Amino acid sequence: KWEEIAERLREEFNINPEEAREAVEKAGGNEEEARRIVKK
């Protein structure tokens, strides 16, 4: 599940997989929260 979210974030925000994974981890697997983290 987290991998899927990280993949979507990576494609959408054009970030590297590591950044995407970190955002999802910080968000506890919550996609909306992960998006907010990435946008900062």
Rank of each mutant, 00 (worst) to 15 (best):
E19C: 07
A27F: 01
A34V: 03
E19S: 09
E7N: 12
A20K: 00
A23F: 05
E7A: 10
E3D: 12
E18T: 12
A20V: 03
E19M: 13
E4H: 11
E32R: 10
L9Y: 03
K40S: 10
R21D: 05
R35H: 06
I15P: 02
A20Q: 02
I5V: 09
E3F: 12
V38I: 15
R36Y: 08
I5R: 02
N14S: 11
R8P: 01
E12Y: 07
R35V: 06
V24M: 06
G28E: 07
G29V: 00
E31H: 08
R21T: 09
E18W: 11
P17T: 12
A34L: 04
A20T: 02
F13E: 03
E19P: 04
K26Q: 04
A23D: 01
E31T: 03
W2Q: 04
K26H: 07
E4F: 10
E18G: 10
R35G: 03
L9I: 10
P17H: 13
V38W: 04
K1N: 14
N30W: 05
R8N: 04
K40H: 12
K26S: 10
N30V: 09
E3M: 11
R36Q: 13
L9E: 00
A20F: 03
E19R: 08
E19W: 11
N14F: 09
N14Q: 11
E18H: 10
E11W: 14
W2H: 07
A27N: 00
K26P: 00
A20G: 02
R8Q: 06
G29N: 03
P17S: 13
E11M: 15
K39H: 09
R8D: 03
A6T: 07
L9F: 02
L9W: 02
K26D: 04
E11V: 14
A6R: 04
E32N: 05
A23V: 08
N14G: 15
R10Y: 06
F13R: 01
E7W: 10
K1D: 13
R10C: 14
E18I: 11
K26Y: 06
R35I: 10
E4Q: 12
V24A: 05
E22P: 02
E32P: 12
N30Q: 06
R10A: 14
R21N: 07
E31R: 03
N30M: 06
E12N: 04
F13M: 07
E33K: 06
R10N: 04
A27Q: 02
V24G: 01
K1F: 13
P17C: 11
I5Q: 03
K39A: 14
G28L: 12
E25V: 13
E22V: 12
A23T: 04
G28H: 14
A23P: 00
E33Y: 07
R8L: 06
G29D: 02
